[in-house]
Design a protein around this nucleic acid. Sequence first.
DNA 1: GGCCGACTCGCCGTTTTCGGACATCGATGC
DNA 2: GCATCGATGTCCGAAAACGGCGAGTCGGCC
Lengths: 178, 178
Amino acid sequence: MTDETIHYDELPTPIGRLLLVADAQGLREVWFENGRHRRAPAPSWVRSRAALAFARTQLEEYFAGTRQAFELPLHPVGTPFQLAVWAELARIPYGATVSYAELARRIGQPQAVRAVGAANGRNPLPIVLPCHRVIGSDGSLTGFGGGLPTKRFLLALEDRVARGDLFGLPAAGGGTRR
Amino acid sequence: MTDETIHYDELPTPIGRLLLVADAQGLREVWFENGRHRRAPAPSWVRSRAALAFARTQLEEYFAGTRQAFELPLHPVGTPFQLAVWAELARIPYGATVSYAELARRIGQPQAVRAVGAANGRNPLPIVLPCHRVIGSDGSLTGFGGGLPTKRFLLALEDRVARGDLFGLPAAGGGTRR
DNA sequence: GGCCGACTCGCCGTTTTCGGACATCGATGC
DNA sequence: GCATCGATGTCCGAAAACGGCGAGTCGGCC
């Protein structure tokens, strides 16, 4: 019988505290403490700093701007369609953005645009699976579980890092859209 | 199926290089290389000196002062109103000028003065369809896609030629307006 | 008083922008 | 099953902005 214990831990970040959840197979969930999907950890879960160290480290590096890709065992739970969408998220390069329509095309279901949006909204592993890199065809940010300001923050962070601007100076002529 | 290929070519003139564009039905566009409406030729267009020889010759004669009327197959693309305005342009005699208001009267829409101005600004066949002969009621030149200096040049050229002054000496007492 | 320039406002086709109405497809709840 | 709901996108029509203008007004200036 395998170990089915679920561990969790908190992690302070520039965008507020995150709750990390994992089982023996990998990272299961990442919540924004103030986000739309927040909820209380189940009573049966065990809080453990050590059990989540593997994810904590890479996330800290990400926010420090020294990590552009995650190498973690993941274990998101969802329908086949959702898993397909989430898997596609992982292929979006750091610092890039993609429209919901384009994402739908990439999973071979160009019509399922809204469904992709819904699946995006259910992404259990924000940041790690970069749903924040998906925006409207017209360039609008449209939505994000952690709030639009957070989405903006993440995109700005990646843009800055990708351009090698570690000081966070405003980009010349690069205003936020809409 | 008719031949829908679009050909183009360049032509050096005293007022800068012109880009000539034509299809099987006739001349479609004439651009000033430095004008307000300049743009790159579409990738599908084919550059061909021979295909535009028919227009090139007459334009060269025009600039040489030996041609006062064009006899070319034309194929300008525009709205019915625009086509009406452009057709009326062709009736303005060489060396003459007309006001926007008068032009509006001639097409039977005396109120549509500004609309005539706008249509004039969209004239796809400058020089051939002499929008440069249209000026303000008070005699001011007001505007021209290829720039006001070019408009002045063309009017001066026609004035000179019409008066038989092939040497281009400044006319006695005939200064440029405004 | 007569002339000129700056300004205002009406005119009208075109272009651009904006907003609402659908199509579309999983997921969810009954 | 069936109806409903989304972190969308496309299309269509209405409304507003925009010109290569002109006529009328109002103040200044000789």
